[in-house]
Design a protein around this nucleic acid. Structure first.
Lengths: 215, 215
DNA sequence: CGCCCGACCGACCGATCGGTCGGGGGCCTC
DNA sequence: GAGGCCCCCGACCGATCGGTCGGTCGGGCG
């Protein structure tokens, strides 16, 4: 996180802009869009507040860009699984594992996503191009899992579950879980993101859901 | 909502105070604690902002009281099921049904709860007595479902699932689902709270989870 | 009648909000 | 060495934040 960045003349881009996004991701994920002021973000980066506006047009745009970054990461890790040549049951297991891994790798992601899903989306309706792109990436991810489920049902390996409800259950069991912060830590008696807890989560999920959806 | 309240000399209590809580519940659930100003709450009730402080000490206290109201409702609807004399499998089904019904009845509840669970709880650590009480009610609810699951495992009718993870899955599949607002509406193609969608949710949940947890 | 009190109000407080503006310093290129 | 560009800054803007204050009003009660 704190390597020598400025000393590398070739890829010094990850400097301020990325640092702002990193800090903002931590803060927004914990206390929400309205709960964090730009002053605090700037302080966390070690810049003046007005410097943020050199890199981003507005608070809205900063947030939208953040969301896009998180969603693109997820999409990139999940896409190859949907398009792979595998049996649906195997695909589903790998998809769940990959989603859990992706969420566990970057603890702020799940919280950010839950906030966005629970919010009455002011962002997708904005004319901000970054927000529009983020919405598209989300649609891609959803399309993938829907297709995966549809395949399995068509081939008769899954029960005839309701696809939208199943998607919701999956999101709840993964994204919500890793977004549950201190509450989840307290329930589990350890950090949600400890290697042990992540492994157990995968096992429990796959056992429950696979068994619950198999024909 | 707009009956003649003041004309009834016996039960005129549900007047302003309850009205404030109702309006605040709608607003906070949709845009979060930090996202709603007291001015807007007061306008929604039809009062001046300063009048809110006649009924509540602070914004924090108003919010804590709100949370307590929601949690007490849930506890009161779930408690009799845990203590009932029924087989664990039957109890679990009824518990899920009751939770879904309770969340579906008052659409703001689920969103409020998800926000609270995802937030790094500033409220339970506060010295606000209303917040402490709300935390206790939440613990009661959690204790109930934990006990229910433990019973089932002990009697061998449930698999040896991890109880904390199972609780998380249950919360995700119910509370998150009904908190997912416009996103969930879009996924389902109808309102999350339509009678049809609620009924389907119950069926899907019970089928999946029961089948996934039975020994 | 006079008195009290709960409900309510507008004006106001200091602080903070997102955002703007003019300018300064380092570095690269003519 | 003179410009140009990128990055950054402090000072400042109007608006809004949670919260306070003094005071008005009307109904119940002695």
């Amino acid at each position: 996180m704190e390597q020598a960045l400025a000393t590398n003349p070739l890829v010094d881009l990850p400097s301020s802009r990325e640092k702002i996004l990193d800090v903002a991701e931590q803060l927004f994920s914990r206390r929400g869009y309205a709960g964090v002021g730009l002053r605090e973000v700037a302080d966390g980066v070690g810049l003046g507040k007005s410097s943020l506006f050199h890199h981003f047009r507005s608070k809205d745009q900063l947030y939208a860009e953040l969301l896009g970054r998180v969603l693109r990461r997820l999409r990139n890790q999940l896409r190859p699984i949907v398009t792979a040549e595998l049996a649906p049951a195997e695909k589903l297991v790998r998809w769940i594992e990959a989603l859990v891994d992706a969420l566990a790798e970057q603890p702020a992601s799940a919280r950010l996503l839950v906030r966005e899903l629970v919010e009455d989306g002011q962002f997708q309706s904005e004319e901000l191009p970054e927000a529009v792109e983020a919405t598209q990436v989300l649609s891609e991810i959803l399309g993938g899992i829907r297709q995966l489920l549809a395949e399995g049902i068509e081939q008769g390996v899954f029960r005839q579950v309701s696809i939208p409800h199943t998607v919701q259950t999956l999101i709840g069991a993964t994204v919500y879980h890793f977004a549950s912060g201190e509450f989840g830590d307290g329930l589990l008696g350890r950090s949600l993101f400890s290697a042990e807890a992540v492994k157990t989560r995968k096992q429990e999920l796959i056992a429950t859901l696979q068994q619950g959806w198999m024909a």
